[in-house]
Nucleic acid binder design. Sequence first.
DNA 1: CGATTTTGACCAGCGC
DNA 2: GCGCTGGTCAAAATCG
Length: 334
Amino acid sequence: MSSKRQKHIDLSLETADDEVRALEEAEDGGDQEEEEEEKEGCEVVISNEDEEANKHQEENQTEEKEQSYEKPTAKDVIKDELCVLQAEMERMKEENRMLQEVIDRTMNDYYDLQMKFADIQQEDQPKVFLSLGRQSSDEIKQAKVADRGSGLADDEELGLSLSLQTHVDPHQRDDAREEKGKGLQSWAAGELTTITSQSINPATRKTRVSVRARCQGPTMNDGCQWRKYGQKVAKGNPCPRAYYRCTVAPGCPVRKQVQRCLEDMSILVTTYEGTHNHPLPVGATAMASTAASSLSSSPLSYLSPYLANPSLPLSTMSSFTSSAGYSGIFGGRQ
DNA sequence: CGATTTTGACCAGCGC
DNA sequence: GCGCTGGTCAAAATCG
């Protein structure tokens, strides 16, 4: 051992050390020299091959020592294996523990959302006002105007806020809008994404969701199939507004409007209206799930049915990070 | 040839 | 009532 340069790696795993000690005691009955070695902990012996070649001449002289060295090397291998296995086991345990925590958190969020959804349903079918987007109450108030006019108002970018308001009487709409919504903000991975949702027609309870996302193409690929049925140049925005109808299933009432933002042509403002009367494509469902889970900690009780039958289109929209608003709109077939 | 897009016409709601 | 505007229709054009 003295003739060879050795590298020692002390893994310091007591349990593995104990097992090795028990093994050696069973085999050798307790050798004095080995016991001293064991006190140093679990060791991994790695010989340096380069120096081993240079000192090849010394090998003959130390042949006897080499022979006596082979015995503890074999045990070191066993120790090594045990140490590695032990370390691996600990790592797996830690990983399991973390995964369990994630599952618990997800389940808690899900139950919480279910409870909140039940509460909302008890409010005599109130009108739900949703606002996703970093908006103040005033901005929410302007949402309808902006939606009808030259695209959505230029909300604060780089963030996602969410508010939920409920009110029954259409005449109270303005008052309700004065309330500042509870907010949830999260990063959109550096991309702009603002979602603004509000119900427009109290009679039909049609909900609308506006999504602002950076998109190079003429429209976002949101996983659904759309047919264009009209195009208009809205006042105040030279960019034409395109009208699309969902063609996934015949008679599906969902429609969407697509228009470039006046302030930033790279931003595509897509407004969805109506509720799908059919199951959504896999891609849309996947995205909906992702979006829903990303907002699981928000006060979005209406997400519960959405989780069961999500309808949010999956897309190539690179900036789409959250899409809870779709749940209020595209409830899918329920 | 069927599906989709384009585009002008038409309709409804709203404000004056 | 009139004009403006947004939304929809439907025929023609285009595409695959």
